[in-house]
């Protein structure tokens, strides 16, 4: 049963309608923990994108080979393999950025979002749809992380990607870890409010 969405729609779905961080509220640990700079967001976003895409494609390729009763262990094995690969690669080729992220790259293996995506989508859909869906989810995660990172880095250290933009540090609080909770909470509330507003307008226009 193939999905009836086009490939482009799959991607935008991942970024907007079913954004992992803001809508599905999954994989929030890194969103709160290390979204202190845009660079971190990009790096971790890329890692998650890589893992999501490769896992989705792998599972989709092997969906007939996997016995239904052991599908969860198989998903776990696949995800763990790709996480190990990206972890080793990042550590070797981008050591400075990797050091910033600590163990969060390894923790990708425990992200509910990836397993859920495999369970709900990749094991039923053909390879190409799985690829685009994985891409969408990964990009959605990256976008979320970058947005939060942007807010925190700008307001916390007055810089973007390490380049001083404001010339002063507005509120050190924002790059302290606990601010992650506040920023995410406020942004979620804000998105909810926007949604309600547009929904009300739509209803009002009918």
């Amino acid at each position: 049963m193939a999905t009836d969405k086009s490939n482009f729609q799959l991607v935008t779905n991942g970024i907007l309608q079913e954004n992992p961080i803001f809508k599905l509220a999954l994989s929030m640990c890194p969103a709160v923990g290390i979204s202190t700079t845009v660079m971190n967001g990009l790096m971790l976003g890329t890692a998650v994108l890589f893992v999501q895409v490769f896992s989705s494609v792998t599972i989709s390729l092997l969906k007939n080979f996997i016995h239904p009763r052991i599908r969860i262990p198989t998903y776990t094995l696949t995800i763990a393999t790709w996480v190990t690969v990206i972890d080793l690669s990042l550590a070797a080729y981008f050591p400075a950025a990797y050091a910033q992220m600590g163990i969060f790259v390894k923790i990708i293996v425990a992200f509910a979002i990836i397993t859920m995506r495999l369970e709900m989508f990749a094991c039923k859909e053909p390879v190409s749809s799985s690829f685009w869906d994985g891409l969408g989810m990964g990009l959605g995660f990256m976008v979320g992380m970058v947005v939060i990172g942007l807010v925190r880095e700008l307001l916390g250290s007055g810089a973007i990607l390490g380049h001083d933009v404001l010339g002063f540090k507005p509120l050190l609080f924002f790059i302290l870890p606990s601010a992650g909770f506040f920023v995410v909470g406020l942004m979620m509330g804000f998105f909810n409010w926007i949604e309600k507003y547009y929904a009300a307008r739509k209803r009002g226009n009918r």
Partner: peptide
């Protein structure tokens, strides 16, 4: 406030605990 019900307010509370 209605937009904050549920997860958003939970996050803010968690933030205060974190502090």
């Amino acid at each position: 406030p209605p937009s904050f019900k549920g997860l958003p307010i939970a996050f803010i509370v968690a933030g205060q605990f974190a502090m």
